[in-house]
Amino acid sequence: MTSFLYHIALPEAVFSSPAASILLPIALGTAVGYSTRPQVNDPEVQALKQPPLRPPARVFGPVWTLLYGTMGYAAYLAVGQTTAGLDISWNTKVVSAGLYTLQLGLNLAWMPLFFGLRRPIEATVDSVALLGINGYLMSLWLDNPATEAAGWLMMPYVGWLGFATYLSAGAGYLNDWTFGPSKSTKGTKKQ
């Protein structure tokens, strides 16, 4: 598994630069968010039943920007600074870099799955995987004094991922796990 994670990890130059570590997830998240966000007047999105406690849509952009920056800085602290001789094994560094890269890819896939493809089951599975990977990364980093600050920085992200998983699963469940056109309009042609 370490070999696989080594090959999928972002380049070391990203992790060794605090600016690149912070700005890369913000830029990628912003690009995916703007390209796959639902239209304000999309009747199918407006008709979706939402679980209790869902915040207004305007909250998500600022929250995700902050979380992307925080997770990027955590990756810099845990992976990038370890190149400066901090006490972390090569295996832990490779696992950290690979899992961080994997979770970033899964994170970026959620919006296209949920809003673009309208696949709530796959989006919820993606969210559960994100929560598990990031919970493990947080735990791994908290267990080592050299990466403990990175583990603490991951806590808000892991907490939000738990909430996001609830929202994803809740919306899927409340809408019978289908976000396509309503059953009454399926199979009818527009004239």
Rank of each mutant, 00 (worst) to 15 (best):
Y173S: 05
A31L: 15
D176V: 01
Y6D: 07
G116S: 05
W110E: 03
Y73G: 00
S127T: 15
F15I: 04
T147I: 04
V94C: 04
I121D: 01
G105K: 08
T36W: 13
W64L: 02
Y166D: 09
S184W: 10
A13K: 15
P25V: 03
N91G: 03
Q191C: 01
L106K: 05
P56V: 07
I121W: 03
K186C: 11
L104P: 11
V40H: 12
T83N: 12
S184F: 02
S168Y: 01
W90Q: 14
V14L: 10
A27R: 00
M138H: 09
A164N: 11
S35W: 10
Q39P: 03
L53T: 13
G85K: 04
W141E: 02
T65C: 08
S139K: 14
P181I: 13
G170P: 15
S89Y: 10
D176C: 00
L5K: 05
D126K: 01
K93W: 01
Y173R: 09
L161H: 12
K93V: 05
T65A: 13
G33D: 13
S127I: 05
A146H: 12
Y73T: 01
I8M: 11
A109R: 01
S182D: 10
I22A: 02
D42E: 08
H7M: 06
R54S: 09
G98R: 04
Y100H: 11
P11M: 08
V14N: 03
G72M: 03
S89H: 09
G29A: 07
L106P: 11
G33P: 14
L130R: 08
E148D: 04
M111I: 11
S17G: 08
S3P: 14
A78V: 07
D87S: 11
P25N: 06
F114V: 10
D176N: 06
I8Y: 13
N41H: 03
L86P: 09
P62H: 12
Q46L: 09
Y157T: 07
Q191T: 15
S182G: 13
G135A: 08
L77A: 02
G61Y: 04
L10Y: 08
A47D: 02
P56W: 01
G116T: 10
V94E: 07
E44A: 05
F4M: 03
K183Y: 08
A9S: 05
S89I: 10
F15M: 03
T165K: 08
S16N: 11
P51K: 10
A171I: 14
R37H: 02
